[in-house]
């Protein structure tokens, strides 16, 4: 139990980077961007090809993010300069990326990364000297937890990365350019009348969004030890699920809070899916169905709850009034 939860939190944090990307396009820019399904694999493929060819994993991961950035740019250009509807722009780019990803991967539908150097194992010797693994595993072992995780470096590294990404996004969205980006999704006509080039802002915004998605894809590939051409299918739904679950559970009053909520949503999503898959009648093929149902629940439940609350409030007022009338007579 502990072991599978540990894995869920680990990958949940990496997927949170992708979810933050989806948050940027879907919520901040109000642009339902389906490029995500393609750019996630683009990131994974670029990183994998770099690593297999002996490039440093850090550089490979950065190149992956840049490749995602360009993919997002193209979706933005299709929408703003080509005047293609946002959904269709994303679908077109996603479809095109499927072939492009296959090209990047040299025609193979998957690339194994086992025994390759990755961002997670390249610091192994340094990490080993710190002795954190032994300390934490010793502590857990004394509580009778088994089996124990082989290394904690992935968890620590992903936590550092996600905090860094979150702070960067929080800061960016309060800068002059960030404010204009938010206004583009909120009231485009207004920000254009305040001398902002909304076309460029959309192109940049979608670039950043897909850059994050590709970064997430690159890290997932290195953590899983392989890239699969089809691993991006349904990624947008996972991203949306994280955003919606996070917002519903942790609130969305301010940007700082919402980005934290999205990260929380991504982790909770992973945990729920992992738990669901433990049920005997479900297997890994049911993942997409579980994702879709989760999104539906996260969308419907908050409204249902607030209607119930409202009804109870009105019921209470009615009883109070009745009691008052009775007391007076």
């Amino acid at each position: 139990m502990f072991f599978s939860m540990f894995g869920a939190v680990e990958s949940g944090i990496i997927f949170a980077i992708m979810a933050l990307g989806v948050y940027l396009s879907f919520r901040i820019l109000d642009f339902p961007d389906l490029t995500v399904d393609g750019s996630f694999v683009t990131g994974a493929a670029v990183a994998a090809v770099c690593i297999v060819n002996g490039v440093s994993p850090v550089i490979g991961t950065l190149l992956a993010a840049i490749a995602g950035f360009f993919a997002g740019n193209i979706t933005g250009i299709l929408n703003t300069k080509g005047k293609i509807n946002p959904l269709l722009s994303g679908i077109l780019m996603m479809t095109a990326l499927y072939s492009i990803n296959l090209r990047i991967m040299g025609g193979q539908p998957n690339i194994p990364l086992l025994n390759e150097s990755t961002v997670f194992n390249m610091f192994d010797s340094f990490w080993g000297q710190l002795g954190i693994d032994e300390a934490l595993n010793g502590l857990l072992g004394s509580w009778g937890v088994a089996p124990l995780p082989s290394t904690w470096i992935v968890l620590f590294a992903t936590i550092v990365i996600i905090i860094f990404v979150k702070l960067l996004i929080d800061y960016f969205l309060t800068t002059e350019i960030g404010l204009a980006l938010r206004a583009t999704g909120d009231n485009e006509k207004m920000i254009r009348s305040l001398s902002a080039n909304t076309d460029s802002l959309k192109i940049i915004g979608l670039g950043i969004s897909n850059g994050l998605v590709a970064l997430s894809g690159a890290l997932i590939a290195q953590n899983d030890g392989f890239v699969d051409l089809k691993s991006g299918i349904g990624m947008i739904v996972i991203g949306l699920a994280s955003v919606i679950i996070g917002e519903a559970l942790f609130g969305k009053k301010t940007i700082v809070r919402t980005t934290l909520a999205v990260i929380g949503g991504a982790i909770i999503y992973r945990i729920v899916v992992t738990l669901a898959l433990r049920a005997d009648f479900l297997d890994t093929g049911d993942m997409k169905l579980i994702s879709a149902i989760l999104v539906v629940v996260a969308l419907v439940a908050p409204k249902f709850i607030s209607t119930m609350k409202d009804q109870r409030r009105r019921q209470r007022k009615r009883t109070e009034l009745n009691n008052k009338v009775k007391g007076a007579s």
Binding site: F172, T174, T175, E176, I177, G178, L179, A180, R182, A183, D186, N187, M190, I191, L194, S195, A196
Partner: peptide, 26 residues
């Protein structure tokens, strides 16, 4: 005005109108 943004953020966007928008705090 942009409804989901605060009064000061709206004013900051208007304040940046006649300059080039940068990566500094609005």
């Amino acid at each position: 005005t942009a409804p989901s943004m605060t009064i000061e953020e709206n004013l900051a966007m208007a304040y940046a109108r006649n300059k080039k928008r940068k990566l500094q705090k609005g």
